[in-house]
């Protein structure tokens, strides 16, 4: 007899611990640090979506920052509204009157819009097997800034759009950074649960079967076309939500807010965290936010590297992960905890 509940109970305990940590973190840290953790939440959401696509469905996207940009611009345009838009570039952001929609409501709309666009992109992309899809998304990421600059009347062109900082609702007496932190982590929590339900259910099984062998999936009655575009759409929707939150948190968006580098580093972080593992996503998000900072100024040594040290470290870490721990951080965690769980499950 083994105690089967030990594994899930441990997971639940860790999750509860994470929630407590997230809720009480703002009391323990400075507002600047808090902003960094807000970005962690945002990356967490984007990486959840990317992991659904790449980890669970086996499709590589090198263009997720472009989908984040779609979400970001959607939110920005909605927040500014028609009246606010006219004042872009003429008045400082703080005094632009709020003509548009309350920022928080733009987030689901941005997710929806990006999801639909991603779905539509996924239709032709479906015909591209593996690497060609990666190429197409890569090309999207490279061309996004040019497109954003070209359609100036919508995006404010190279000058970008400045957004007012949102205030906490219901007369809640916290500062905008604190509000943004809770907003981002709230969205992250909801989307985590959604992703968890998705990958655990029928849809997730279909995705995995396509990833592990498309021909076999077809013969067991799964339509790759339907499920692959679905994965693309949902993944883009996640990116859209992340992009909207990013724009609001950044209170500014321009064509360089979501560069190609971000697309590439998103994929790298997803791999470092661990593909097809939701728990690894948080590691990926932390790496994406903090690795560039610490690579430049290692906390232990008293040195200061050039800005370019960050990508070098990032690339090397990624290559080492591929060599040494294909499951990423999550795989390592599983390997480390398995004996503990096994020991606890055994009756003494």
């Amino acid at each position: 007899m083994t105690r089967r509940w030990v594994g899930p109970a441990l997971t639940a305990l860790v999750l509860a611990g994470a929630v407590v940590l997230i809720v009480f973190l703002p009391r323990m840290t400075s507002e600047f640090r808090l902003g960094q953790f807000t970005y962690v939440a945002i990356y967490f959401i984007a990486l959840l979506g990317l992991n659904i696509l790449t980890g669970y469905n086996g499709q590589i996207s090198l263009g997720h920052a472009a989908f984040m940009a779609v979400g970001g611009y959607t939110a920005a345009v909605l927040i500014l509204g028609q009246e606010g838009f006219k004042l872009v570039g003429q008045e400082p952001a703080e005094i632009i009157p709020k003509h548009g929609i309350t920022p928080i409501w733009t987030i689901p709309i941005a997710g929806l819009v990006t999801g639909v666009i991603g779905y539509l992109f996924g239709l032709p992309a479906l015909r591209l097997a593996g690497v060609s899809l990666a190429l197409a998304t890569f090309a999207v990421a490279v061309s996004m800034p040019a497109i954003a600059k070209r359609f100036e009347h919508l995006t404010g062109g190279g000058g970008g759009l400045s957004l007012p900082l949102p205030e906490a609702p219901f007369g809640w007496d916290i500062s905008p950074p604190h509000w943004l932190y809770y907003e981002a982590w709230g969205a992250a929590g909801i989307l985590f649960v959604v992703a968890w339900l998705l990958v655990r259910g029928r849809v997730g099984r279909a995705w995995r079967s396509i990833r592990d062998g498309e021909v076999a999936a077809v013969s067991s009655g799964v339509s790759p076309a339907v499920y692959k575009t679905l994965a693309f759409g949902i993944s883009s929707a996640y990116a859209g939500v992340a992009g909207a939150l990013f724009a609001i948190q950044n209170s500014y968006i321009n064509p360089d807010t979501f560069p190609l580098t971000l697309s590439i580093l998103l994929l790298a972080s997803a791999v470092i965290g661990g593909l097809s593992s939701l728990s690894g996503v948080i590691v990926g998000a932390l790496v994406l936010e903090f690795l560039p900072i610490y690579a430049q100024e290692p906390p232990v040594f008293d040195v200061n590297f050039a800005k370019q040290a960050a990508p070098v470290v990032f690339g090397v870490v990624l290559m080492l992960i591929v060599f040494l721990m294909p499951g990423g951080a999550a795989g390592l965690l599983r390997r480390l905890t398995r004996p503990i769980v096994a020991a606890a499950s055994r009756r003494s």
Partner: peptide, 13 residues
């Protein structure tokens, strides 16, 4: 892709 990131950084460095 890892090589891409590392080489790009190294060139700039």
């Amino acid at each position: 892709i890892g090589l891409l990131i590392a080489l790009n950084g190294l060139t700039g460095w």
